[in-house]
């Protein structure tokens, strides 16, 4: 019973943590600006001689398609719609190789299944950024759980650090599971 209580508390803690991240106490649009000036970001030294030469986040980020999390920028849309045109190489002639292939990960417990779209990822990244060292190309060959992702591994290498954060559950867990008439069939699918 005590163990069950502890599990419940842990679930509550994670829930609270996620809820706090998903619904910040202060809405971004009202009192607090979405992008703090560098001098107030608790990272840059306001006394430093270089700070006045650096670009302020609001100057560029406010002109890009908006989002509710992260940099408050939908980076995929910014690229798709041509708001930004980032370079793809410096000295090499490597061409952009976009792969339009969705992978569905079905073993997601109670959550919707995960749709991984290669297209959006290969617009930004090279195949070797993820393959084969982190993810095997063979579908289903890489075993990982949400705990690994939350710890900052696999998807969590980028999501939760630079790509949209892990509070955005439904952006990945986006494919509903068809409810079967027989519970046994459902169990098999999970």
């Amino acid at each position: 019973m005590v163990q069950n209580l502890m599990k419940g508390l842990l679930a509550l803690c994670i829930g609270l943590g996620i809820a706090q991240g998903a619904f910040p106490a202060e809405p971004a649009s009202t009192e607090k600006p979405a992008w703090l000036p560098l001098a107030q970001d608790d990272l840059h030294d306001p006394e430093g001689p270089g700070i006045k030469f650096l670009q302020e986040p609001a100057e560029s980020l406010s002109t890009l398609p908006s989002d509710v999390v992260g940099n408050r920028v939908n980076w995929v849309r910014a690229l798709d719609k041509g708001f930004i045109d980032p370079r793809i190489n410096l000295y090499s002639n490597k061409k952009q190789k976009v792969l339009d292939l969705d992978v569905i990960r079905r073993k997601t417990g109670e959550m919707n299944m995960v749709r991984f779209p290669h297209r959006q990822h290969t617009e930004w990244l090279d195949c070797t950024n993820c393959h084969e060292w982190l993810f095997k190309s063979k579908a289903g060959a890489t075993k990982f759980s949400m705990f690994d992702v939350l710890k900052g591994d696999f998807c969590g290498r980028c999501h939760g650090a630079v790509a949209f954060p892990l509070t955005q559950c439904n952006r990945c867990h986006s494919v509903p599971r068809r409810v079967s008439a027989t519970p046994a069939a459902d169990a098999g699918r999970k």
């Binding site: 943590g17 990272l43 700070i51 992260g70 710890k151 939760g160 630079v162």
Partner: peptide, 29 residues
């Protein structure tokens, strides 16, 4: 040669990735 444009942080900061919108929980490494 433009040292202070990159070396612009507050003294005492620890190496790592920052910014909000993480779970605030186990995702922090």
């Amino acid at each position: 040669q433009n040292c202070h444009l990159c070396h612009s942080g507050l003294p005492g900061l620890k190496t790592g990735i920052r910014g909000g919108d993480s779970t605030g929980g186990p995702g922090k490494w």
